[in-house]
Each structure stands twice: as structure tokens, then as C-alpha cells.
Simulated assay, not measured.
Amino acid sequence: MVSDSQTFKRAFKDMREGLHQRELWLSLGWQDIKQRYRRSVLGPFWITIATGLQALAMGLLYSTLLNQPISEYLPYVTIGLIVWNVISAAILDGSDVFIANEGLIKQLPSALSVHVYRLVWRQFLFFLHNAAIYLLLLAVFSIWRDLDASVLLVIPAVLLLFLNAMWISIAFGIFATRYRDIAPILGSMTLMLFVLTPVMWSTKALENSVGGMSDRARLVEIVPTFHYLEIVRAPLLGEPSALRHWVIVGVITLIGWIVAILALKQYRARVPYWV
């Protein structure tokens, strides 16, 4: 006999209840940022400054190494880094989302998904702060001249990005709470993905530099995070967004949510005991 706590009905109910408790996770997510930069003069804008300096350093270095114009390469690297920060946080913070909220889970009568919503909301606020860097580059390098109606594709792209952040936090959070070795494994995997994903380098620059080796450059297609970068970065740079990137991201999103709902159905009630 299947326990009532291990049904799809209870899993979806948890997601709905967590969404209805939005005043709680909206407040907690904002407090997380305020607490991190408490007594700081610039406050949350240190997020923007830190990301901007990192993007500037990477852009200057790799534009020189790959012999690329800084006016093209710096926006490319900056957008890639902004998107990567969301992906990285979804994996690393997502795997720790329930462990980090042990006290609240045991003492506060709320849906388990509240902690996931809180994490994703906090990362969305980080994303908005970092988006200010893109607006600056838009003016400095006149990127706006290359933009057309396709720039609106960034809206569904960002939506997909954060939908994936949610299922990653649910699935990885549950499994990492049960098996504590998963978190350090994910840390190593994220570092490897950062190297393999064209955040600091571009496939076009690689093809131009090695000449006639485009087949090797296309190997990056097997790295799933590459496709997430492309659906966001291409519209913001005024470049065409290939359909295959959207299809691959859509398939991963569907499979990921199936895994997340199954994990929530089967193990939701056990998380308070595991933490």
C-alpha cells in the first residue's frame, strides 16, 4: 500500500502551497541579500561590481589570447558569465537548499518547496542586478544597433533558465540531503562544466584560430549548459538563435521536471528526517 505522503497529489500540493506562501519566500529571499551586504555602503550593488570586474578581466584576457575585438568579445563574455552564475548557483546552492534550511524545515510548518522558491527568487534578484552590466555595454558598444524583434526571445529564454533552476534545486536538493557525497561531486562537476562551456571562449573564435577544425569545435554541442547560454546570449547580441538549442533545452527541462516531481513524490516526507 502506497503511503498518502508518497503520491503525486501530495507532491503537486506541496508545489501549490509553496507558491501560495509567496509572501514568506519573497521576504526571506530579499532578506538573504540584505543580510549578506549588511552595513555595506553599496549594498547589493556589490553583486554587479564583482560580476562586472570578473567579466572585464576575462574579456580583456581572452580577447587578446584569441585575437578578438574587445567590442565584440566583452559583451559575449559578460552575458555568458551572467547566465553561468545562475546555472552554477542552481547546481551548487540547489544541492544545499534543504540542508542549509534545516532549522526552518524542522520548526516552520511550511511546504518544502518554499525553500526552493526562496532560492530561485534570490538568484533572480542577483540576475537582475547583473543585468545592469549588459545595459551599460548596450550603450558603450552600441549593441542596440544590432538588435531587432528577436531580442524578445530573451523573455522565454530566461523563463526556461529559471524553470530549470527550480527542478535542479528540487532534485539535487533531495538527493544531496540523503547522500551527502553528492554535493562535493556536483562541485567538481560544475567546475568541469565551466571549463567545457563556452563562457570565456567562443566556438567561432576556436574555428577561426585553428582553421578547418570546425568538427572539433562542434564537440561543445554535447555540453548541455552550452545550449542554455546560447538561447539567452544570442538574442541579447542580435544574433540568430538556432532552433536546436531551444529543442535541446526544452527536452532537458521536461525530463528534469519529471525527475524532480518523482523525487518530490517519493521522498518529500523524508527530507525533514534526513536534514
Rank of each mutant, 00 (worst) to 15 (best):
M1I: 05
M1W: 10
V2C: 02
V2N: 02
R10L: 09
A11F: 03
F12M: 11
K13R: 08
D14M: 10
M15P: 00
L19D: 01
D32F: 11
Q35G: 00
Q35F: 08
R36Q: 12
R36C: 00
Y37G: 03
R39V: 05
G43L: 09
W46V: 03
T48P: 00
A50W: 07
T51W: 04
T51Y: 08
Q54Y: 02
M58I: 03
L61V: 02
Y62S: 07
Y76C: 02
V77A: 08
I79T: 08
I79C: 08
I82V: 14
V83Q: 05
V83P: 11
W84F: 08
N85L: 10
N85Q: 14
A89I: 04
L92A: 12
V97K: 05
F98E: 03
I99V: 15
L104W: 09
I105R: 04
L108G: 01
L108A: 12
P109F: 04
S110R: 06
S110E: 04
A111N: 01
S113N: 09
S113W: 11
H115I: 13
V116M: 05
L119K: 11
L119Y: 09
R122I: 10
Q123C: 13
F124E: 09
N130K: 14
L137F: 11
F141I: 12
F141P: 10
I143C: 07
D146G: 14
L147F: 07
L159W: 13
L161R: 03
F162R: 00
F162A: 12
M166Q: 08
W167R: 07
S169G: 06
S169E: 05
A171M: 13
F172H: 06
G173S: 04
I174Y: 12
F175C: 12
A183Q: 12
G187D: 05
S188A: 15
M189D: 05
F194T: 01
W201N: 01
K204M: 06
A205V: 08
E207F: 01
S209C: 00
M213W: 12
A217I: 00
A217L: 06
R218V: 00
R218I: 03
F226R: 11
L229H: 09
L229W: 08
R233D: 00
L236A: 10
L236G: 05
G238T: 01
E239G: 00
P240F: 05
A242D: 12
V249P: 07
I252K: 06
I255E: 02
A260H: 05
A263Y: 03
A263D: 03
A263L: 15
L264S: 06
V275N: 13
